[in-house]
Amino acid sequence: MSFPYLRPRRLRKNLYLRDLVAETRVSPRDFIFPIFVKEGISEPEPINSMPGQYRWPVEKVTKIVSDALELGVRNVLIFGIPSYKDELGSSAYSKDGVVQRAVKKIRKEFGDEVVIHTDVCLCHYTTHGHCGLLTRKCVGDFCRDVIDNDSTIELLGKVAVTHAEAGADVVAPSSMMDGMVRTIRKALDEAGFTDVAIMSYAAKYASAFYGPFREAADNAPQKGDRRTYQMDPRNGEEAIKEVALDVEEGADILMVKPALAYLDVIRRVREAFPHYPLAAYNVSGEYSMVKVAAANGLVDEKKIILEILHAIKRAGANVIITYHALEAAQWLKEGLDRELF
């Protein structure tokens, strides 16, 4: 024989045998479903840039949460779109803010049946659309607006506490400010919320894959960009440094964002920090590209989505934040993963 005696094809000859020896399994329990909640609307509002996704009024957000629970998706991530914005993002830490009201409503309706994660940032709430407070700095005659890191993280601590007071289980700071995890942990602990966890956007890249989200959440920067605080897509070692800092500061769950173009980073973080839960965010651009391609008959939608989710899990993520969560959960419930693979 011109090849080894072992024949790997023996374990691929039918779908049930392939399923028996499959190394990677994806479950609805792995998913966090992002939900946009918007003030000033009375009915769900379609998001043009993200086919199949909606902005939900606070009064009706329990409908989509109920749909998620029915499919076995018990984790949701709440993003708020306020009716009022200012330079300080003050509605982000209002006790009557859009996220705070949505969290209270979800908690009252479902109790502990759902795990509520909340996005902690200022970009949705500031008139300038940046993730931190702007300050004017001058060197000689040259002046420019820069992000004031240290005053920003103090406000993020306030935001996190109001989310915890409303009933959030996990707060997810996404601004990539230095020291944000430590400051939020301190604020939560001092307010008595020692059991509220932090899922940190530990390695969040300045990515072109966020385009549809910025339309969905109305949070695009009015001028400039976010490259001074989000990570350079060319860097991998830097991700390990960023994650290590968040671990030291007290993060409970780590995250890499986006997912598909950064599977190598997911793997590196998993290997460097094997004892920490690791999330990967399958972001809006990744979602919308698949939806547009499927709508034009270019790909098999079900197969490509399940392949993507398995790839993210295989790379090392324990948790997948994805807009595909509900449809994928339905397909997994029907056993389509076995049939498709």
Score class of each variant (00 low, 15 high):
V76N: 12
L77K: 13
P82F: 04
P82G: 01
Y84C: 13
K85G: 00
D86Y: 15
S91C: 06
A92Y: 03
K95E: 00
D96Q: 13
G97D: 02
A102Y: 11
K105T: 04
I106H: 03
E109G: 04
F110E: 03
E113S: 07
E113D: 07
V114F: 14
V115C: 15
V115I: 15
I116Q: 01
H117S: 06
T118F: 04
T118Y: 06
C121V: 06
C121H: 05
C123F: 04
Y125G: 00
Y125F: 11
H128Y: 10
G129T: 00
H130F: 08
G132D: 02
R136T: 08
R136P: 11
K137G: 09
C138L: 08
D141F: 14
C143W: 10
C143V: 09
C143P: 10
R144S: 15
I147L: 13
D150P: 02
T152F: 15
L156N: 09
G157Y: 01
G157K: 05
K158V: 01
A160I: 04
A166K: 01
A168P: 07
A168F: 11
A172Q: 07
P173F: 13
S174W: 08
S175V: 13
M177K: 08
D178G: 14
G179H: 09
M180S: 06
V181K: 09
R182I: 05
T183F: 13
I184V: 02
I184R: 00
K186R: 15
K186I: 15
A187Q: 01
A187P: 05
E190W: 13
A191T: 00
